[in-house]
């Protein structure tokens, strides 16, 4: 076994559009070692989201294998995949995707409802996660009472709360101003450096990519440095 946490081998992802075949990922290989912070760049429509979805267990490849933390995701059915996602991976999106009627605390608690934790244990975990993103004092606020940067931090806390090995971030600063983006990227760096999270991040912004340990470009279905 290699020390790779993520191992993508000869993956093809082909969409059928009408009669046309659209090859999004073409015989693609990728190794991500544990503790890496990888920025993925590339033109719009080049397949960055598609690749993240495969690694996050949200989608399966047309062919090839995707192995994450010793699990062959391409062989799992949708039920097994959702169970795997619950404990191994945290997702952070461009548009935060918080539930508007729930408080920050409740939003962060959502993934823990799937576990056997008692409500006091859940409370402890949620407070730890909110503490990491420095939002303990906003726990009882609803999303519309928080700024964009704060909402994204709640989303990060939600991704962290079940203590996954990998964080998958699809344009996490795409909707934020420069200053707030820097705040969020600093936070991701802390998570990578001090909390040992392996991070895969898609971004359009070269400045954002600078926060990562390494940068890869995706174009025409292939990866390059």
């Amino acid at each position: 076994m290699s020390d790779s946490l993520v191992s993508v081998n000869a993956v093809n992802k082909i969409y059928q559009r009408g009669g046309e075949k659209l090859v999004v990922l073409d015989d693609l290989n990728l190794e991500v070692p544990k503790g890496d912070f990888l920025a993925l760049m590339g033109p719009s429509g080049s397949g960055k989201t598609t690749l993240l979805n495969l690694i996050g267990g949200l989608d399966t490849p047309t062919s090839g294998s995707v192995e994450v933390d010793n699990a062959r995701l391409d062989t799992l059915n949708s039920r097994a995949l959702s169970r795997w996602r619950a404990s191994h991976v945290g997702f952070i999106f461009q548009f935060y995707n918080l539930l508007p009627v729930l408080t920050a605390f409740r939003n962060v608690e959502l993934p823990l409802l799937l576990t056997k934790l008692s409500s006091s244990q859940r409370k402890e975990h949620v407070e730890t996660a909110l503490n990491i993103v420095s939002l303990v004092d906003r726990a009882s606020h609803k999303p519309n009472e928080l700024s964009g940067g704060q909402q994204q931090r709640v989303a990060i806390a939600r991704a962290l709360v079940s203590d996954p090995d990998i964080l998958i971030c699809d344009e996490p600063t795409g909707d934020l101003d420069r200053e707030t983006s820097t705040e969020i990227l600093n936070l991701l760096q802390v998570l990578n450096r001090d909390h040992g999270k392996t991070i895969l991040m898609v971004t359009h912004d070269p400045m954002a990519a600078e926060f990562a340990k390494r940068i890869l470009h995706l174009d025409k279905g292939k990866l390059s440095n």
Binding site: G56, L58, S78, R79, S82, R83, W84, R85, A86, S87, F91, F95, N97, L99, L110, P111, L114, R158
Partner: peptide
């Protein structure tokens, strides 16, 4: 729909 997608993303089964 977006909320339900989030539920599924974070591991809620069908």
């Amino acid at each position: 729909t977006p909320e339900l997608a989030v539920f599924k993303t974070i591991g809620y089964s069908d």
